[in-house]
Nucleic acid binder design. Sequence first.
DNA 1: TTTCTCACA
DNA 2: TGTGAGAA
Length: 142
Amino acid sequence: MSSHIRRSMPLFPIGIVMQLTGLSARQIRYYEEHGLVSPARTEGNRRLFSFNDIDRLLEIKDLIEQGVNLAGIKQIFASRKQAEQPEQPKQPNKSNTPATPKVVKQDLSEEELRELLRTELMQAGRFNRATLRQGDMARFFH
DNA sequence: TTTCTCACA
DNA sequence: TGTGAGAA
């Protein structure tokens, strides 16, 4: 039950995220402006992204490439939220309402995460220091 | 050096 | 969205 904390732990500065996602800093910040991602901030006001954020960014990238605009992506994320956190069903479906939006895609991560971490590890190697990460990272390579 | 915000060709 | 300025 600690996978959540790891996935939501702010670890990467925007530079790393750029390489991991292939998005420009501009785009990343732009998406943040639109509430598509909410990275944490350091004391110096630097953005720190978590694995969750990166996953999200990757999804956004895919969607954009598929021709979906920000508004559309917002909706997709919104409807997904509903699916995961079904607001108290005020009205029980008497008739068989197939109220299941079906999140069409997504079993992304696992494979993409590999690529991400690989890159991240290489980065970490650049400034051979943050070996703190390698320990945590290792868990992802089981 | 890297990232931040702001503003504009 | 890209890009550059000026600051941290």
